[in-house]
């Protein structure tokens, strides 16, 4: 757990400004039109070189959409994504290709992310064939074998097919494919949520090791707060497509200032039966509102214990309350004082 101790270089490698991803949804009826589903509704953040930003939130809050929006796998409805000084938002396929080398993604379902008809050697080599077609077959194979070795796969498995591997091994293949081009940023879209706990630890440690070796920046999307805490330097909490709190890892867990973050953290089990029993849990009422018709003002007000008139009228902006801490709540001080756990 020394990842938080390293101080990354203070210069953002990636700046995301007010990005929005809306999906048009067909309405029923004779005079049907489309209404936007606001999957990501104005998110800002900076990412430093070598830093890990954890993105947490419940199902359907826009975590994966955010990750895909940054990589231009989904069309942005608005906003800028500035990668090393260049705006990559809305670039065409051809223009985007030169950045693809530096931006990679690891997927949630390890087996589904591998083409079942290709050998894993071909799968891992594919990025090389796309970006470095001048490499000879031997050089390519050598690079693939080195990378397989680095991620903990036996290089002699190179001619096997994905269905011959376990979930954890498939995820290692996914990591190898993402790493073969030596990218600078990897979006990890719930990379371990489909794996069992012992394997999760192996994959997390593999990713952390690679981060240290190659100076990677990571955007680590997960709904598992313990894992995010383990791997991240900073954490962003998403709710209904909005960032509600962004803070340094330690600050977020020790001093959460948004009522939603507090509720999330109170739900994390503590591996001590006495403490766990004594702990008071904040149980939120109701369900996540529909992103087709989000609440006015603060998106969290329908479930917030502190909600007042102001929350319905005015959308709280993400405000800096400390150098490493931003929160989007009108009454964050009250929430901070009321905190029980």
């Amino acid at each position: 757990m020394n990842s938080g101790a390293q101080s990354p270089v203070k210069e953002p490698i990636l700046s995301v400004r007010n990005i929005k991803v809306y999906f048009p949804i067909q309405t029923a009826g004779l005079f049907s039109g489309t209404i936007p589903l606001k999957a990501v509704d104005g998110v800002d953040f900076d990412l430093l070189a070598g830093e890990t930003l954890g993105v947490v939130g419940e199902s359907g809050c826009g975590k994966s959409t955010l990750g895909r929006g940054i990589l231009q796998l989904l069309e942005l409805s608005d906003g800028n994504v500035v990668w090393m000084g260049n705006n990559i938002g809305g670039l065409s396929f051809r223009e985007m290709k030169k950045y693809r080398k530096q931006l990679q993604i690891i997927f949630q379902d390890p087996l589904a992310s591998l083409n079942p008809r290709m050998t894993i050697g071909d799968i891992i080599a594919e990025p090389l064939t796309v970006h470095y077609p001048e490499l000879s077959a031997e050089e390519r194979t050598q690079q693939v074998k080195d990378m397989m070795d680095r991620v903990g796969l036996l290089p002699l498995m190179i001619n096997r097919y994905p269905h011959e591997f376990s979930g954890g091994q498939c995820q290692r293949i996914g990591v190898a494919r993402a790493m073969i081009l030596k990218p600078k940023l990897i979006v990890c879209d719930e990379p371990v949520s489909a794996l069992d706990v012992s394997i999760q630890a192996q994959i997390i440690n593999l990713i952390k090791g690679l981060q240290e070796d190659f100076g990677l920046s990571l955007i680590f999307i997960s709904h598992d707060l313990s894992i995010v805490r383990h791997i991240s330097h900073r954490i962003m909490v998403l709710y209904l497509g909005n960032a509600v709190e962004v803070a340094d890892r330690k600050r977020l867990y020790n001093n959460p200032c948004h009522p939603y973050t507090q509720a999330l953290i109170s739900a994390v089990p503590i591996p001590d039966p006495d403490l766990e029993k004594a702990k008071q849990r904040i149980v939120l009422q109701g369900d996540l509102p529909s992103p087709l018709n989000p609440p006015s003002g603060c998106v969290f007000r329908t479930r917030c214990p502190l909600a007042r008139d102001l929350c319905a009228r005015e959308k709280p902006r993400l405000q800096q309350i400390d150098p490493d801490h931003q929160v989007a709540c009108h009454f964050w001080q009250e929430a901070q004082d009321q905190r029980i756990i």
């Binding site: 796998l73 993604i105 992310s113 083409n115 990025p127 796309v130």
Partner: peptide, 10 residues
């Protein structure tokens, strides 16, 4: 997802 992976690779 493997099609998306191919897109992400370019």
């Amino acid at each position: 997802e493997f099609i998306e992976a191919a897109h992400a690779t370019g």
